[in-house]
């Protein structure tokens, strides 16, 4: 009963978020069809999708928070928990596994002090596994933020993470 009367508690989406979401809505037959786009837009601005953000999006799309959460939690690249400034997507699919991505993960863990699913204490990085990144000829690969790193070796990690290495 309280659910439907908590509008006042939901923080508004920013003007730019609304503009971007509404631009997507213009292309589809009903508002909830842009659920994934809207989640990505808000995530791009806020880093992740908090419960509050999710409810604000749901209201804007005329759908329940429950339905939107069902969508949000289905997709692995919608973050429903806070992540660091940059997300490390470490490919652990077959070609990268052959080329030693597990060792690479241990290296990263050692260097940044985080396991899979964890965020560094300085909030700079979150380490996540990801499905095959489609660069198997350059295995092992990983993405840091939007940038793809190919043929990653232990030695190249220092360059990628800079002074984050070893602070843990």
């Amino acid at each position: 009963m309280s659910d439907r009367n908590d509008a006042a508690l939901i923080p508004a989406l920013s003007a730019i978020e609304l503009t971007e979401i509404d631009a997507e809505i213009a292309h589809v037959p009903y508002r909830s069809a842009v659920a994934i786009d809207a989640l990505k837009i808000v995530q791009a601005h806020r880093g992740w999708v908090s419960d509050e953000s999710l409810r604000a999006i749901a209201r804007h799309l005329d759908m329940s928070a429950d339905e939107l959460d069902g969508v949000a939690t289905f997709y692995n690249l919608i973050y429903r928990r806070p992540v660091g400034d940059r997300v490390i997507l470490l490919c652990n699919s077959i070609s990268c596994w052959i080329k030693g991505c597990e060792g690479l993960r241990e290296q990263i863990t050692g260097q940044l002090g985080v396991g899979l699913g964890e965020t560094t204490a300085d909030n700079r990085y979150t380490l996540l596994p990801v499905t095959c990144l489609g660069a198997c000829d350059k295995a092992p690969v990983m993405m840091v933020g939007d940038e793809l790193h190919e043929n990653v070796e232990a030695l190249s990690l220092q360059a990628i993470f800079g002074d984050s290495g070893g602070d843990k």
Partner: peptide, 24 residues
């Protein structure tokens, strides 16, 4: 009803509400 949904994926699927509370 709109306040019960399938959440997550693969063998982690969860049927519930966004937050707990009275089913509407």
């Amino acid at each position: 009803g709109t306040d019960l949904a399938a959440m997550a994926a693969h063998d982690h699927i969860y049927f519930g509400r966004h937050q707990e509370g009275v089913l509407q």
